[in-house]
Design a protein around this nucleic acid. Structure first.
Lengths: 124, 124
DNA sequence: GGCACCCTGACACGATCGTGGTAGGGTTGT
DNA sequence: ACAACCCTACCACGATCGTGTCAGGGTGCC
């Protein structure tokens, strides 16, 4: 098998990283570790992906986060409008008066992007 | 009732914000909107909390996030070590060679904090 | 002192998550 | 060509989430 191309197949990657083959596909579906594909569609896990899978394991164990949580964090990284909206919300705490901060343009269209990009993390 | 103290009780806050009383308690349990309490333990929703509840509603509808997702984002805000760990992981993508970045001290104790603070978001 | 409200804790129940398994069909190497 | 792999698409199933409801007990006010 891949003694020359240094890219592992799904089952091989599974055994060396401690995940199951099923979970590797699931992790890919969440957009967390997406390996390139061969011409015929086989997943090809290179050193970068293997490293990513191992450290992901560490991360989950040490932090107590779940896979979906990391997916959310990834989404925040990819959609800065969303992260900004969250930032804004977190700071709605102290303003007990209806004093408008007046440095912002206007908060009427404060978050104007099509939702529903939520479910299609991968365009498959 | 509270025409003088301008702080609403749970049921009142529920009707004016569109949440249910049950959900208000759940949102509090997630640490997202935590109202102060009266001496006898009644929740007192002031204008800040009401605003927070309404904008939280907006946020969820527009972004497609779930309540738990916002909880995770909040956790990232409160635990910068965790956010740093995630940052580190997200950048493990491009290093296809085992070249160590050598600007970092050492990644052996790269994330050393007691887990299990996960379940006790509120110390109750 | 009663009535209307609040609290916590529990059970319930559909929906989603994490994970395994299987079926049906292509690919690869000898 | 045949075994040994890989793929996608399902079904299953326990665990957790989101939400309602109810019981048992305290609080506030007329």
């Amino acid at each position: 098998m891949s003694t020359l191309t240094n890219a592992l197949t799904t089952a091989e990657a599974a055994t060396t990283t401690g995940w199951s083959a099923r979970m590797l596909r699931y992790v890919e579906q969440l957009g967390l570790v997406v390996p390139p594909r061969s011409a015929s569609g086989y997943r090809l896990y290179g050193p970068a992906q293997l490293q990513r899978l191992r450290t992901l394991r560490e991360l989950l164990e040490r932090s107590g986060l779940e896979l979906g949580d990391v997916g959310v964090a990834l989404r925040l990284r990819r959609e800065p409008e969303l992260a900004a909206a969250l930032d804004a919300w977190f700071q709605t705490q102290l303003e007990t008066e209806p004093r408008r901060p007046q440095g912002l343009p206007d908060d009427s269209d404060w978050l104007a992007f099509e939702q529903q990009k939520h479910t299609q993390l991968l365009e498959h």
